[in-house]
Design a protein around this nucleic acid. Structure first.
Lengths: 251, 251
DNA sequence: GATAGTTTCATACATGCGTTTGAAATGCAA
DNA sequence: TTGCATTTCAAACGCATGTATGAAACTATC
């Protein structure tokens, strides 16, 4: 029942209509207001409460559209989730790669290792903990998706591995003498620290009685990057970057 | 309907019967075989597939007991989950504190910082990645529980913060001159690395094409501890516990 | 071996879910 | 306008879930 390749009912529309950078811009909102409203509401609810306890009725209520609209525009609940994920996934990866490329160009093909890690965790951290609320939903949705692993996402997520390999390759170019296994471990740890910080920032706040500042996203990024570099090289970062570093060079 | 404090129906039993260390010993199995079978099956299924897509019918099928048995012995699905969680939570915390205490006694009240981190992440890592399959279910269940956050667990989990504060306090005794915020961050990162390694070990394996060895639990623990210590002190661990991973010989 | 208490069983219930339906509303070109 | 395609709507469908029920099968005590 799940693998119907041909539509017997020509009623459904659910055109893909992938856009080049997320779906948060309201340029042609009025065009298909319903579709946009569903996407926005679904992303927010999933980010807030996880996939398990958000129903389609919750989504359409938040979006103020009819229940049947989701199936009409997306085909099914799973396809809605999948579209949310692939769109956001592409956007995040694009931002990461843009920063990576800038760092490599700034270093003549050998990017500063700090910049590589910053390109890896920066976009997500900024998106999740930063002040911009709407993007926050997007990034927190991605964190949820990377954890709760609902079926429609699991298949797509395999591509993530290829994406991360590009960062591992950049690190190998940057530090050719480093043990490759250490590179993968450090990359793994960097993502772990970033994700956990986003996912359970509340526990850290409570545990430290508010001592750990979760509003200064740049400081958090710097900290994660510094630890990741130490994990990789075994010694403190040579140039502990206090200022928004060279990754911003390209503009 | 959800908050019935008095049982109108005296049929239900679901006595708590907390045991002193987990429920995996089969000492008096035959006594209430059904209850034990449910617990074992539920824990395994939840560990494998998460809370979202494991139904009571899945559990009773795996346990080979009647559907009504869960409600009879535990009252409800949520109470079953809660009992699983509190029992395992107590066992894990007990093991951690035992190691912490041993480390503090060995250091006259000031435990070696490496030993403190090892006490924090060691029990979980060993339980999840080690060879002992049954304990593995237990620990992976706890990881799931710490992520997916189903309602019956969310309430209990607040105590976790108090538990972690004891480790933060031990670190402060061990390194009195260290910035307290750094201690909390390092503790947070240590848990992040350990949990992510358990949760997504598959991605690390695939990303590194099998280069990262996930079978040597002691080496993984050492690595996490070493990075955590560097995150805290800003310099490599002075006295690596064991043979440090092969990366050091470079440079 | 009858009796009372405990545990199991097959079955049913109520509810909420994702999805479907057919018709009504809307947009739009001729 | 008319005609046709697209989109919305209220209502329902089928199904799976957690829970409840009452009787049957045990178990132990007398």
């Amino acid at each position: 029942m799940r693998l119907k390749c041909n539509d017997p009912d020509p009623r459904r529309f659910h055109g893909a209509m992938l856009q080049k950078d997320g779906f948060d811009q309201d340029d042609r909102m009025a065009a298909d207001h319903t579709r946009t409203a569903i996407i926005t509401a679904a992303e927010r609810l999933y980010a807030e409460r996880g996939f398990a306890d958000v129903t389609m009725r919750d989504i359409v209520a938040a979006a103020d559209v009819n229940l049947a609209a989701v199936n009409y525009h997306f085909g099914s609940k799973d396809e809605l989730i999948a579209e949310l994920f692939v769109t956001r996934s592409l956007a995040t990866n694009r931002e990461r790669l843009r920063e990576l490329k800038a760092a490599e160009e700034a270093g003549d093909g050998r990017a500063d290792i700090n910049a590589i890690f910053a390109a890896l965790v920066g976009p997500t951290l900024r998106g999740c903990l930063g002040p911009e609320k709407q993007r926050s939903d997007a990034a927190r949705f991605m964190i949820r998706a990377s954890i709760e692993s609902v079926p429609p996402i699991r298949k797509i997520k395999n591509r993530e591995v290829d994406h991360l390999k590009r960062f591992a390759a950049a690190m190998r170019r940057s530090l050719p003498d480093q043990d490759p296994a250490d590179i993968f471990w450090a990359l793994h740890f960097a993502l772990a620290m970033a994700h956990q910080t986003i996912r359970d920032s509340e526990r850290l706040t409570r545990m430290s009685d508010g001592l750990c500042d979760l509003n200064d996203v740049q400081a958090i990024t710097d900290r994660v990057v510094a630890v990741a570099v130490m994990a990789l090289t075994g010694k403190p970062a040579k140039a502990p970057l206090k200022e928004p570093a060279k990754a911003k060079a390209r503009a």
